[in-house]
Write a protein that binds this DNA or RNA. Sequence first.
DNA 1: CTTCAAACCTGTGGGC
DNA 2: TGCCCACAGGTTTGAA
Length: 302
Amino acid sequence: MARPTRTEVVVPELPEVETVRAGIERHVVGRTVATAEVLNPRAVRRDPAGPDGFAAAMTGRTFLRAERRGKYLWFALDDSEALLAHLGMSGQLLVGEPDRPLSPHVRARFTFTDGGPDLRFTDQRTFGHLMLTEIADGERRLVPEPIAHIAADPLEAAFDAKDFAARLVHKKTQVKRALLDQSLISGVGNIYADEALWRAKLHWARPTETLKPAEVSRLLDAVRDVLTEALKAGGTSFDALYVNVNGESGYFDRSLHAYGREGEPCDRCATPIRRDAFMNRSSYSCPRCQRRPRAWQPPVVG
DNA sequence: CTTCAAACCTGTGGGC
DNA sequence: TGCCCACAGGTTTGAA
């Protein structure tokens, strides 16, 4: 039984990041940074200005909006610049009383000129990062320059379902790899990829080029449903490593059908869920509902 | 151009 | 008890 427990780590995907964005928004928008402090330089490793340059450039800036695409969120600082954040595997953005104890995993801290609650970027595994960056043209939307290459996520207006379908079936890869490819569709990680595939009754190894239009449509519907339901539940989170802006854990984990359920009965057919090694991680699927594709032969041309 | 996999990182838990 | 190692995984980078 590998079902995630409250002590396991679960990475923030689109629903969790959106929960953070919405929670942070009302606490920081309209406020001006009094001090910016980088406690671990790795937190700003992608910012060419370095820790000191980053801190100096953030001082005096005002948070205007909180936006998100896929798993990235950012705070617009003016028309041309933004503070971009990725939570990585264990990142949190926490708002609280400025004089509360500094936990050992706080990587960056911002105080505000109004003397109110501060903002802390906490990240145990340090895969997340912050950077101050230019705004640029992304996929049908203005976004921070470093993420101009990622695709729209399926919950935003800029997402083009026809374009996604065309690009998906044109790929020469397995369907789960495609779902995790942020330049094709953003916001989906390992958990929701498995959940969407279970819901759409598709095996993770299915070659994308063999997907029929109805299957692509079913898959996209499944992705949207899974993300939307998780968002309603406040994001999946199993332990203290991931909490929302107010420090509350989510509770969507009870509705997972595939992820982390090795050996447990499928909720549709009771066949034990299996776990496969995949891309140096795990894929969970129902061996009966999600049939492994037969060996596929390329079409003969001519 | 595309696809793929190593590397980055640290806390946890199982095995011995 | 304590040590070691596998595992968790999003993204970048470089190789093929």
